[in-house]
């Protein structure tokens, strides 16, 4: 596959003349956006938003094709990326699962099989409870969870971001949670609205509708600062009225999930630079701002070394938990 592709690239270069090779790298055929989640998932919306921004603002001449490869919690997409080493026409969209998945499952790729392009936003995590639940704040909640029977906490997937956070909270407080994995954050949201579980740690966007309708409410957000102010969501509450967990006395300061973009390892540096440019332009558009606002994410754009050091810190934090819980396979 790889050799075929590089032959193809070489042939293209010959056909289109040496002049193109001299100039900066530019895609000459459709670029594939590989989405490491199913259609409709958070990563899918992320990739398709970028696609629509690129199309609307003519940021790239070559057309974009979106391909969903969400099997195995996204591993399918990364394995595909690793198998396309040196091919600059495969842009891979994901989260922190790119570098965390290989720790908890034996997979056919290594994080180093891809080079980072950009981390475009940070998704927040909150503790949500059913609207009728008796807990007024996070302290009440943690106290209730310290009782011998503990509380039932739902989340998306197993040994993934949600369960990692739950076990961090558990270690920080000594509370006891029974973690129930569902297929998606959306399912966890509905189960909470129906009071089948006691809480979940969904991203803002996954519980937004239920909060607005007064079926669930947030207790606190795992962030150093409160979230950006916006319109009122439920009653007189807006996102910025949610206390941080630290304020509430829960000693877990920061837990966020990056929305990341990668290229297969071995692509020319010019190609990385080209896509960094395109994404930089994309994140300055009003469409991107409205995506960030609508999904209540934190607007933080990282590339190059900044992104590398973020990844390293995030990885270390998670690996500690994996080791402690005995999830690590390597």
């Amino acid at each position: 596959m790889n050799s075929k592709m590089s032959i193809a690239a070489a042939v293209c270069a010959v056909i289109f003349g040496a002049t193109a090779a001299q100039a900066e790298w530019k895609p000459t055929k459709p670029v594939e956006f590989v989405v490491t989640s199913g259609a409709g998932g958070g990563t899918d919306t992320f990739a398709r938003t970028i696609q629509s921004i690129i199309a609307k603002n003519n940021l790239m001449e070559a057309p974009v094709v979106v391909v969903n490869k969400g099997g195995g919690s996204g591993a399918e997409g990364y394995v595909y990326g690793a198998g396309n080493a040196g091919n600059p026409y495969k842009l891979i969209f994901g989260t922190n699962n790119q570098y965390l998945l290989p720790y908890v499952a034996k997979l056919g790729y290594k994080p180093a099989d891809m080079v980072p392009v950009a981390s475009m936003a940070l998704d927040e995590f909150l503790i949500w409870v059913n609207a009728e639940a008796p807990y007024k704040d996070i302290k009440d909640f943690v106290d209730a969870a310290k009782k011998p029977e503990g509380l039932k906490m739902g989340g998306s997937q197993s040994k993934d971001t949600d369960q990692t956070l739950v076990s961090i909270v558990q270690n920080a407080t000594g509370a006891k949670f029974t973690y129930i994995p569902f297929k998606s954050g959306g399912e966890a949201a509905v189960q909470l609205a129906g009071a089948h579980i006691d809480a979940n740690v969904n991203n803002p966007n996954e519980n937004f509708g239920q909060w607005k309708a007064g079926m669930v409410r947030p207790l606190c957000v795992f962030s150093a600062n409160r979230m950006a102010a916006g319109a009122k969501v439920a009653g007189d509450m807006s996102w910025s009225d949610i206390p941080t967990c630290k304020e509430g006395g829960l000693n877990v300061e920061n837990y966020q999930m990056p929305r990341t973009v990668w290229l297969p390892a071995g692509v020319p540096d010019d190609a990385v630079k080209f896509f960094v440019d395109v994404l930089t332009k994309a994140q300055q558009t009003p469409e991107w701002k409205s995506y960030i606002e609508r999904t209540s994410q934190t607007d933080r754009f990282l590339t190059g070394d900044e992104m590398r050091s973020f990844v390293k810190a995030d990885e270390e934090k998670a690996v500690q938990v994996f080791k402690k819980e005995g999830w690590a396979v390597q």
Partner: peptide, 10 residues
């Protein structure tokens, strides 16, 4: 495959 590449399609 290689034939399309030679013709410059994709």
């Amino acid at each position: 495959g290689p034939v399309e590449a030679m013709l410059g399609i994709y």
